[in-house]
Amino acid sequence: MMDLFEKTIASKKLYEGKILNLRIDDVILPDGKKSNREIVEHPGGVSILAVKDNGKILIVKQFRKAANKALFEIPAGKLEFGENPDACAKRELMEETGYTSEKLKLLLSFYPSPGFSEENIYVYLAENLREEHVDTDDDEFLEVYEYTINELVEMIKKNEIVDAKTIIAILYYINLL
C-alpha cells in the first residue's frame, strides 16, 4: 500500500483576512516529485440542527454573497481561531434563532472542500429548545422558519435547499430516526 502523505517543505502566506487566510505550500509528493498546494486557512464552523419539541426544525434564510442569493440553511457560524465548537454552537443557535438548547450533541464533522481548504464543520443536534430572543450580529440579516423533516426533504429534492451543510445534517438526521 502506497504512503499518500505529502510532506510540506516550505509555506508562504499570500493573504490574511478577517474570515480566511491563503497560503501556498511547497510539497514533496509520494513519488518524490515536488509540487505546490494553494490552501485556504479557515478556523472552521459549526452548524446546528435545532429540533423543536413538536418535531419541526429551525431553518434560517440568509443572503449569501458568494452564491449571490438568499439560501435556506440550518443555523451556523464561523469558529474563532482556537474557539471551542460546543461554545460556538450555543452562541450561534442563540444569535441566529433566539433559542437555547438544554440538549446539544455533536453528530459529526466534515471537510466541505478538502482539496483546497482546512475548514472543518461540526454539526450539532439541539433538542429541548427554549425560546429567548434573537440577537443577530450587526451585519447579519436573516429570517427564521420552521419545517417538518418531510418538508425539508422535499425542499432538497426541489433544489430549494442547496447548502451542503444543511443537506448533510438533514440526511444524517433522517438516519437517526
Rank of each mutant, 00 (worst) to 15 (best):
L108A: 02
L142A: 05
Y124I: 01
L79W: 09
S47D: 05
K34T: 05
M155H: 08
S47P: 04
N150S: 15
L177C: 05
D86K: 11
S109N: 14
M94Q: 15
E127L: 07
N120L: 14
A169T: 09
S11E: 15
D163G: 05
I74L: 13
T100K: 06
K13A: 06
K33W: 00
I48S: 08
T148K: 09
E16P: 04
V51G: 05
V51C: 02
E118Q: 12
E132S: 07
Y15I: 14
R37F: 11
N128L: 03
K52F: 01
E146Q: 01
N84D: 13
E151T: 01
K65Y: 14
L152D: 10
K56V: 00
A67S: 08
E102W: 13
D3I: 13
E151C: 01
G82W: 04
V60Y: 07
D25H: 08
Y99N: 11
N159A: 12
D163K: 01
V51E: 11
Y99H: 07
P75H: 00
P114Y: 04
A126G: 07
N36V: 00
A89R: 00
T166F: 03
L22G: 08
N36H: 03
Y111L: 09
L49C: 01
A76T: 09
S11D: 14
D86H: 13
E102I: 02
I19C: 05
F5S: 10
S35Q: 00
L176N: 02
A10I: 08
I24V: 15
V60D: 09
L4A: 06
V51S: 01
N128Q: 08
I28K: 09
L29P: 04
G32I: 04
F63L: 07
L142E: 04
R64Y: 14
L171S: 14
I168R: 15
A126M: 02
F110E: 04
E140G: 02
G55K: 06
L176D: 01
M94E: 14
P30D: 02
T8C: 15
K165F: 15
N128D: 13
E83H: 03
T8L: 03
E132H: 00
S109V: 06
C88Y: 03
S35E: 00
I168E: 09
L20Q: 14
A164M: 07
S117A: 12
H133R: 12
P85M: 12
F72V: 00
E92F: 13
N120Y: 11
E38F: 06
V46I: 13
